[in-house]
Amino acid sequence: METVGRTASTNADVKALAMQGSVAEGFWLRAKTQSGGIGRLGRKWESPAGNLYCSTVVDIRSGDPLPSSLSFVAGVAVYKAIRSFLPGAEMILKWPNDILVSGAKICGILLERMKDQVVVGIGVNIAVKPEIEGRAVTSLAAEGATIDAPGFLARLSETFAVVMNEWRDQGFPYILTEWQKLAHPVGSIITTSDERGETTSGEYAGLTADGALCLRKGDGTLIEIRAGDISIG
């Protein structure tokens, strides 16, 4: 585990190491601040001091589940790490790997494939909840937890290793089952939005075997969503 004071992006740094073949599974890089953090769909990730900005790497081994399924591994691991510090909070996983606490976003997860490795970037609001227009945001401190970024990462790295071992040993169906126990319930009203801003609403009807979101429209049609943002309610 390595910590730097400031960098553009921990994901970019770990990707560079992966391209050089000089980083092994289990390595974690944390930055105290970032100048160019990126979230899903290319969004800027606000990076004030006091929050967690980190990346790790997973080797793609023969016999592993599909690398794309690591998105659910990361979501479950981060959820469980947060839950350990907020045992009584209202929390849900939101497809595919967002975590809402008291109805507000608390983290961001970004996976990027580099040759035979996947770089997993994770940002968690620990001390500060950034102001983001049009989006409810919270932090561990705002929800009553007393933990700093290094302490949270120590817990997260342990939890991530456990969930990743379950992914390898018990398979992706096991991880999907765990994910669905922690997520919005079947029947929840969901609106999806694609990269063009087009929206579709319906009832959440579970996940496919490869993790796509199933949405039942008002006319009974069942569709599968494989990319985009969702809102609940």
Rank of each mutant, 00 (worst) to 15 (best):
K105Q: 01
K105C: 04
I106L: 00
I109A: 01
I109L: 05
L111E: 01
L111F: 07
L111Q: 03
L111W: 08
K115D: 11
K115S: 11
K115Q: 11
Q117Y: 14
Q117G: 07
V119N: 01
V119P: 03
V119F: 05
V119I: 14
G121R: 03
G121N: 07
I122V: 15
I122H: 01
I122C: 03
N125G: 09
N125L: 05
I126T: 04
V128R: 03
V128D: 01
V128L: 01
P130K: 00
P130M: 00
E131D: 06
I132E: 06
E133I: 10
G134P: 09
V137K: 00
T138L: 00
L140Y: 05
L140G: 08
L140V: 11
A141F: 09
E143M: 01
A145E: 04
T146A: 06
I147W: 00
I147Q: 02
I147A: 02
D148W: 02
D148C: 04
A149S: 13
A149M: 07
P150Q: 06
F152Q: 03
L153V: 12
S157W: 00
S157V: 05
E158S: 10
E158L: 06
T159G: 03
T159V: 13
V162A: 09
V163D: 00
V163K: 00
M164R: 12
N165L: 09
E166C: 07
D169M: 05
D169L: 06
Q170A: 10
Q170C: 08
Q170E: 08
F172S: 09
P173W: 08
Y174S: 07
Y174N: 02
I175C: 02
L176K: 08
T177I: 04
E178N: 08
E178M: 09
Q180R: 12
K181L: 10
L182I: 14
A183Y: 12
A183F: 12
A183T: 14
A183L: 11
G187E: 08
S188I: 12
S188P: 13
I189R: 10
I189M: 05
T192V: 15
T192A: 15
T192W: 14
E195A: 15
E195G: 15
E195Q: 15
E195N: 15
R196W: 14
R196T: 15
E198W: 12
S201I: 12
E203H: 15
Y204C: 10
Y204R: 10
Y204L: 14
G206S: 08
L207D: 07
T208C: 10
A209P: 01
A209V: 15
D210K: 09
G211P: 05
